[in-house]
Design a protein around this nucleic acid. Sequence first.
DNA 1: CATGAATGAGACTTCATTCAT
DNA 2: TATGAATGAAGTCTCATTCAT
Lengths: 207, 207, 207, 207
Amino acid sequence: MARKPPTTPRKKASQQRSRATVEALVEATARILVREGFEKASTNRIADVAGVSVGSLYQYFPSKEALVAAVIDRHNEAIMRLVRAAFAEVADLPIEKAVRRLVTVAIEAHHIDPDLHRILAEQIPRSGHLAEVEAYSHEIHALVRAYLERHRKDMRKIDPALAAFMCVSTIEAIAHNTVLNGAEMLSEKMVKVLVDETTRMVVGYLR
Amino acid sequence: MARKPPTTPRKKASQQRSRATVEALVEATARILVREGFEKASTNRIADVAGVSVGSLYQYFPSKEALVAAVIDRHNEAIMRLVRAAFAEVADLPIEKAVRRLVTVAIEAHHIDPDLHRILAEQIPRSGHLAEVEAYSHEIHALVRAYLERHRKDMRKIDPALAAFMCVSTIEAIAHNTVLNGAEMLSEKMVKVLVDETTRMVVGYLR
Amino acid sequence: MARKPPTTPRKKASQQRSRATVEALVEATARILVREGFEKASTNRIADVAGVSVGSLYQYFPSKEALVAAVIDRHNEAIMRLVRAAFAEVADLPIEKAVRRLVTVAIEAHHIDPDLHRILAEQIPRSGHLAEVEAYSHEIHALVRAYLERHRKDMRKIDPALAAFMCVSTIEAIAHNTVLNGAEMLSEKMVKVLVDETTRMVVGYLR
Amino acid sequence: MARKPPTTPRKKASQQRSRATVEALVEATARILVREGFEKASTNRIADVAGVSVGSLYQYFPSKEALVAAVIDRHNEAIMRLVRAAFAEVADLPIEKAVRRLVTVAIEAHHIDPDLHRILAEQIPRSGHLAEVEAYSHEIHALVRAYLERHRKDMRKIDPALAAFMCVSTIEAIAHNTVLNGAEMLSEKMVKVLVDETTRMVVGYLR
DNA sequence: CATGAATGAGACTTCATTCAT
DNA sequence: TATGAATGAAGTCTCATTCAT
């Protein structure tokens, strides 16, 4: 077993069939991860579920890690699409409105695929892709910080980096716990209440 | 779906030698988890590091899971000792003072063994240990809720369970991120700032 | 009570190479059973003798039991080929001739691979293989019973199932003991005498 | 692990407590063999069930094999007590009566502890005690042969050794199959029928 | 390019036996 | 002599990865 197998996709999947295969593999990995857990996600099983041979799997992904990395990436990209859009929307909105929107998006983002989210949260450290994931984290902090600096005059005096850290930590945690803690808190109404509360907490903090 | 191997210790260590062995095994597990990661924590390696034979390992722990469970428990117990003491101290203090103390304790608790904490939080497969961990989580929520109910007259009207959820999520997240984000935020002064900020956020929210 | 690991082959050997591997594994198992006994028949050793890797073994057989089951089956199938042919031959023969032929075949059948036969009879844990073995046993009883019913008019009045039980037990035991008791009783002449005696016993019983 | 550990009892169990311990160990072994199978009969488990420590087990039995051997011996002795008594009773009886009694005893003997009998039949080859067991087998053949020689004038001309082989094989097989085939054939009446039939077969053969 | 048979290191676990107390 | 903790060889089985076809 090679100590550090590469984790970047092997080729550009230039042809159509290739792309379909790659997609099938990533999808199969995600599904197995969610439905059967990390332990069961062997490369043979993944290839099987994807409907291709192990050989083909290794044609496109140099290692199992690379496959998991691709799943992580796909999921994070989906989240980031929501998040980036929300920040664009919100750039000129007043604090209260902006925060409310961002909190809502945070919860929505955790709803994209909660089970996958939970599994990936566990697997990321093992996947050797902390760096990529931290890039997303940094991006979010930067977005928040940019918003805060832009609206600094409507807030109390506070270091923007520190405030960003506080806000991101808080919102992320509440969204995470809300969604991952399962069915008990998922009613429409409950979500609305949580958005209200979180907004109140963050806005109160910033002012 | 999954077979559930037991995760409770196999026999009580009655003699002195036994207790030393058990202790050595748990300690070795924790050390390997921290220094080499979950993947490397094989039963043979654990026994090796503990200076005993695999046979002895299985004399006291019915599975690898049970060993990890013991580590989790030991760590959570250490945290809970701090936390319970803090709540006892704080029971009659006014909100501001109480929150400040609890935030401080949260950060201290994450400092008990930050590396182990990180591993346990990130790298341990949740399945199988959920029960143990949730028990502690519930206890903390209950403690916070009890405090809030006791001091309800000094706060705005708010559902105690909901408020507990908000406060625990927030404080826990900030403490977690503060400690786990590594060396950059660990200065005495920085910690004080973070305690101030978190206290302000939570107190502002409750009033 | 006991978990029941599967004992049926894991996948059909579709390609030629596969079939050779499967064959080699079953053959190796039989050889080790005979030459070194059940205890020595570890999966690693079997794979080794078969000239393949353990991995390949588990590609085709889900457990050690399954391998043993395959050996049993192969042996029983070989026996049953003789036995079925003999019953076909004998269907219309008069009792004396028929019994003589069947006794002879019973001894021949035990000669197919006497050492393997002994091991299978004596040393294989019954649990798990009972089903397969009983199927053959039932088939033999049914064949005998069918013959007896067909020739009922040449015999005394007797329950065919009971008579089948008596005849099969007797013939099987004598053939078994004859062959397994080793070299001392294997002379041509001795076999003839034993066939005579057994025939006399059984025919005398039926008439 | 020593290649060939001794299988004879280590000491004479001269004292009373010793004898009780030895008895408890043999009994525990038999019970585990019957109730949980050979696989579960580990020395630790045996000691546990016997209510003594493993250390004590090895005080009295030099190996697990020796323990199994003791069980085999105890069981065979019990059988042989019946058998010897029966032959004594039968020595001067006419053939028909004698055979009937011996067949009955054979079935009774198999009833002493059928489950243990079945397990032991499997384990004897592994136990390295074939020799002792064959001694019993020889004894039985000798007893039958002696009877046959004594009553030779009431039979057709036949080699006594051969006739003994035929009779023992037949009676043993029928008794074995009758008892081991389980509940379906155990009614009082059925046993009587089987005794009748077996007697008829054997007597018919001898005359 | 695809296939899937083959590989083999290594993980987990058991158990007969020894030996310090 | 009894105890039971400790040992470690050995067994079963999995799975990431390679490579002949």
